[in-house]
Design a protein around this nucleic acid. Sequence first.
DNA 1: GCCAACGTTGGC
DNA 2: GCCAACGTTGGC
Length: 156
Amino acid sequence: MSNKTQFWLMKTEPTTYSIDNLEKDGSTHWEGIRNYQARNFMTHSMNVGDKVLIYHSNSKPPGIVGLASIDSEPYPDHFAWDKKSDYFDKKSTKSAPRWYMVDVAFETKFNTMIPLDELKSYPELLDMMVVKKGMRLSIQPVKQEHYTFITSLAEY
DNA sequence: GCCAACGTTGGC
DNA sequence: GCCAACGTTGGC
């Protein structure tokens, strides 16, 4: 683990959980990550205090809607143990949890979202993961310069 | 609602 | 350990 602040992009479907829900909750458990690469970022690389771009996926339009921060160490995603949950996974057990989550704390909601189309229009963001075709990863590392560029674009 | 681009599963 | 089949994500 690094003690330097790192930057992330985390996707959420606003019909499931939006930036407005996060603002109301203040901090929330980010359950339901069922992809090993995304999990490994949480368990191996994230640190409390890391900065997060909140991204609305499967929305019209999709885009970055605000800022958050990592608010806990990773801990087992207990929804994987709940048969009634959409996130149930019989292969995850209490003695050997397969899936983890972190808490995410609300920081800011942008006055207007920065849509994916707009992100794609900036040469500065050409190599940002989220603008690439077929990029399905729901937790992505973000370069500091991309984070800074986006936070300077945003209206608060 | 379509479908491209993945990621996972399971037979062999 | 390969890879076809299947399932999911998510932009459009």
